[in-house]
Nucleic acid binder design. Structure first.
Length: 426
RNA sequence: GGGGAGAUUCCAGAGCGGCCAAAUGGGGCAGACUGUAAAUCUGUUGGGAAACCUUCGAAGGUUCGAAUCCUUCUCUCCCCA
């Protein structure tokens, strides 16, 4: 199966420039995707592009991952309704380093002819001065053409700086440069990048008299219409310090049936047969969530490794066990495992001396442990019957004392099904 | 430079000088139903046990009383030059 076929059945192709498939079938082709250093970590939205590059490499082509040291300084207006604030150089460089490190984890940089390469567009842009750029590059692209782009058109009402307006030319030049210097004939990216990519192929056609191609991936959507990769707490990051492996695992595990079926095609390398088998298994016994499980395991292991996955699974099992079973499991846990398992779960501390005297539930939930922000919130939660201590629901008038200690050290607090909090007694 | 519009609680968006901690929708959280799913229904969504306290871009002022009136300032948007 070739690259295009692979991408097609996985639902990862949104738009493709005519002639692309012929080019890919003809020879080993170099292709690239750009990543902007807007944060100090990539998030799971970028994972689509990463997977695309990996598929590309697996199909025998040569992938380039471009870190946008230069484009990051300008700011891509695509999909943005407002002018963006520019990052200062220090932040930008820090972000760039972090992003580079993450990208290196996914691609094979040492496999001969089609080994992946990492490039930074700042390396060629730092040599270019403004006058040369507007003479040699700007001359080939008309303002009319640039204005016709969606990213520009949609901003005509609210306004847009010259800086952001120029963005497509800067990105276009990247493509041109890679075409000239690395024989790169394909650029891929999210569907919002189509305009920018096409400016590049246009530049290659006019300035380089060459032919270059483009593929975009669809914007990933969830069935309920909410944004993919975002939770109330923010993005799901690939950096485990920003999103713990436990949370990361849980994000995928909690995917709806419909989403899980789409995600497993996009974010794993499982074959069509494997996926279809999983799907029918899932249909037989939906409550087992085999689809979500397979999805979550596959991605977590690739991003965080086997060990972190194990911890995430153990934490999940422990936290979602029912009643006595959970407590039993909890009691047997070693301190080491406890720390690993609950790394991503918020924690607080309470003094043993206080606990011995007994603490009224409301103040235990707030001042003593720091689980909930205010007494009012605590009362509300108790009224809603949503608070559990060690998996058992508690009432408004409860007094917390040493009798609820697990292993003489911990208390597991919980609000609702999914919000956990560990109190360590010191 | 000239003219106009606006800034409200997480977001959008109402808001007669007293009955406004502030309508409504969205989002969030929780409960029921489940499968740690979706859909649906219900409750809740500044702090305080309460009296009451702190909030409606900022600072002053008028008033017994201001998110609502006045002054200045800051910021945003639109139109004209």
């Amino acid at each position: 199966m070739n690259f295009i076929e692979e991408m097609t059945w996985r639902g990862m192709i949104h738009d493709i420039m005519p002639g692309t498939e012929e080019q890919l079938n003809k020879e080993m082709t170099a292709g690239y995707i750009g990543f902007d250093p807007t944060a100090d970590s990539l998030h799971i939205g970028n994972l689509v592009q990463i997977m695309t590059l990996v598929h590309f490499q697996r199909a025998g082509h040569k992938p380039f991952a471009l870190a946008g040291g230069a484009t990051g300084m300008v700011g891509d207006p695509s999909g943005k309704s407002q002018e963006r604030n520019l990052l200062d150089n220090k932040t930008l460089n820090h972000n760039l380093e972090c992003v580079k490190k993450q990208l290196e984890k996914f691609l094979d940089f040492d496999c001969g002819d089609n080994a992946a390469e990492l490039v930074n567009n700042y390396d060629w842009f730092k040599e270019i001065n403004f006058l040369d750029f507007i003479r040699d590059v700007g001359k080939h692209i008309s303002v009319n053409y640039m204005m016709a782009k969606d990213s520009v058109k949609s901003r005509l009402e609210t306004g847009m700086s010259f800086t952001e307006f120029s963005y497509q030319l800067v990105q276009g030049y990247d493509y041109y440069w890679l075409y000239e210097n690395k024989n790169c004939k394909l650029q891929m990216g999210g569907s919002d990048q189509w305009g920018n990519i096409v400016t590049g192929t246009e530049l290659i056609r006019r300035k380089g008299q060459g032919k270059a191609f483009a593929i975009t991936t669809p914007l990933i959507k969830k069935a309920d219409g909410t944004k993919f990769g975002k939770t109330a707490g923010g993005s799901i990051w690939l950096d485990k310090n920003k999103t713990s492996p436990y949370k990361f695992y849980q994000y995928w595990f909690n995917a709806s049936d419909e989403d899980a079926a789409n995600f497993i095609r996009i974010f794993t390398f499982k074959t069509k047969e494997e996926i279809e088998a999983l799907e029918s298994e899932h249909k037989e016994a939906p409550h087992l969530r085999v689809l979500q499980k397979a999805l979550a395991e596959d991605i977590t292991i690739r991003v965080h490794g086997k060990e972190e996955l194990q911890n995430a699974i153990e934490a999940s099992q422990l936290l979602f066990k029912k009643g006595d079973e959970a407590i039993a499991a909890f009691k047997n846990i070693s301190e080491q495992l406890f720390n690993d398992v609950f790394e991503g779960v918020p924690q607080g501390e309470v003094a043993m001396s206080e606990l011995e005297q007994g603490i009224e539930i409301v103040s235990f939930l707030t001042e003593a442990s720091g689980f909930l922000p205010s007494n009012k919130e605590a009362r509300r939660a108790l009224k809603e019957n949503s608070i559990s201590i060690n998996k058992a629901k508690v009432k408004m008038d409860a007094i917390v004392n040493t009798s609820v200690l697990i292993d003489n050290k911990y208390i597991l607090l919980q609000r609702g099904k999914k919000n956990f909090f560990v109190v360590k007694v010191v």
